[in-house]
Design a protein around this nucleic acid. Structure first.
Lengths: 164, 164
DNA sequence: ATACCTGCAAAGTCTTTGCCTTAGG
DNA sequence: CCTAAGGCAAAGACTTTGCAGGTAT
């Protein structure tokens, strides 16, 4: 009858884990809390730091790593392509879309809250190529308004540091 | 209004390098040849193997690595997000688009030769958020027809899908 | 002749795994 | 209790860099 939890909350996910024989631990609670508090994708190190258990104690890096593998396998989170040197994760609320706008200069990541621009394309591809279970990854990269603006008096040509 | 080379060929790129004071070497020729022969994105190791100089001699891995950094910086190639553990590169012919359809089971990568489905969105974002120099990365992930089909006696034939 | 490149090798970074201990249910 | 999870540490996998000798121009 009633399903465990349809609302995609930390508690709902914890219940789901429990219902599959997995355990709810302080680390897991902390990691989920960090994910739900996040405003943009987090790397494993960031997740670890923000998953503080209590009194400055952090879960082990390997614990975070394994937890994310687990959540990814359950489609609760997904990796985001930020063109950086390590993995970034964010929640996969099934009722939302996750397309991003990334500034290659300052690293800012904006989650695009717009109707998915490739939903139709995705359906067409499924038909045309016979692919099943299609998902997509869509990121826009560019220079944000602040980073595009000339720094007042520096007629910079181009180039510069930037987070490659 | 004639530019050195508008055709985006290996020779054209080599000329460009030369015109910037860079040198045309056997390794570089081999790497470009490998890129132009490729039918899907290549990893550094794959590029190295396919950039054979002569008589089984391969360019050094570091050479390939540095060459790709160079080409990426010149927008002659770009990295492709294949959700794998290493970098994949392909050419960036300015007259084409590079959106992909990837099978998560067998790894097949299909370059989508369709009008870019997010060209409009990209323009809107530039206006709405003030981003400049927008580019995007768009990949579809799923299971291809063959990998979706049940392993046993698959009655393929009639309604033929595959139009690769 | 002179920069620029290459090859070699070492160092770096992030990811992944093994193993024993801890603790959730 | 019994077994999944955590902590620690080592091993992997790629990437990145320093240098000395080679080579395109």
């Amino acid at each position: 009858m009633t399903q465990p939890d349809t609302s995609f909350t930390a508690d709902g996910i914890l219940s789901l884990l429990r219902s599959k024989g997995m355990r709810v631990t302080r680390s897991r609670r902390g990691i989920l809390k960090a994910l739900f508090n996040a405003t943009s994708p987090l790397s494993l190190v960031e997740l670890q730091k923000q998953a503080e258990i209590e009194g400055g104690v952090l879960p082990d890096y390997a614990t975070v790593f394994r937890m994310m593998i687990l959540l990814d396998g359950m489609d609760i989170v997904h990796k985001v392509n930020l063109k950086r040197s390590c993995s970034y994760y964010e929640l996969s609320d099934p009722s939302r879309h996750y397309d991003h706008l990334v500034c290659v200069e300052c690293g800012k990541v904006i989650l695009l809250d717009m109707p998915c621009p490739v939903a139709e394309t995705e359906k067409q591809l499924a038909q045309q190529y016979g692919f099943t279970g299609l998902k997509h990854s869509l990121e826009f990269f560019g220079r944000c308004a602040e980073c595009s603006a000339p720094p007042a008096s520096a007629p910079e040509t181009a180039s510069g540091p930037a987070i490659v």
